[in-house]
């Protein structure tokens, strides 16, 4: 591995780490539930990118499988959370007509 590649990988890890921190700030601050879904979705994608960078840095091919599995789980998690929020909004919208 050349020095240039090693430097590039170190810079990439730093940039993605900053991105993860910024996304975590948005998850904590909200303010609406939709913002949290967006941030958690981006957090999953950024984690996949981080694992892919480490696959190059450590020379481990197996990390790519972990990245694919994490992308799958993050997708289903996002879908489930979005459906849950939409369902909750539907229940809330129905309440006045019932009572």
């Amino acid at each position: 591995m050349t020095v240039f590649l090693e430097t590039c990988l170190a810079v990439s890890v730093g940039l993605v780490a900053i991105a993860l921190v910024l996304t975590a700030i948005r998850v904590l601050r909200g303010p609406t539930e939709g913002d949290r879904i967006v941030a958690i979705d981006l957090f999953g994608v950024l984690a996949v990118a981080m694992i892919a960078i480490f696959a190059i840095w450590l020379g481990e091919q197996v990390f790519l499988d972990a990245a694919i599995a994490l992308a799958l789980v993050a997708f289903f998690g996002t879908i489930a959370y979005a459906r849950f929020v939409e369902h909750k909004a539907a229940l809330k919208a129905k309440e006045p007509s019932d009572g």
Binding site: V11, G14, L15, I18, A19, L22, R26, V38, V45
Partner: peptide, 13 residues
């Protein structure tokens, strides 16, 4: 790729 990831995070914030 890392720069685009950072741009996405800055946009989200």
């Amino acid at each position: 790729g890392a720069v685009f990831c950072l741009i996405a995070a800055i946009g989200v914030v």
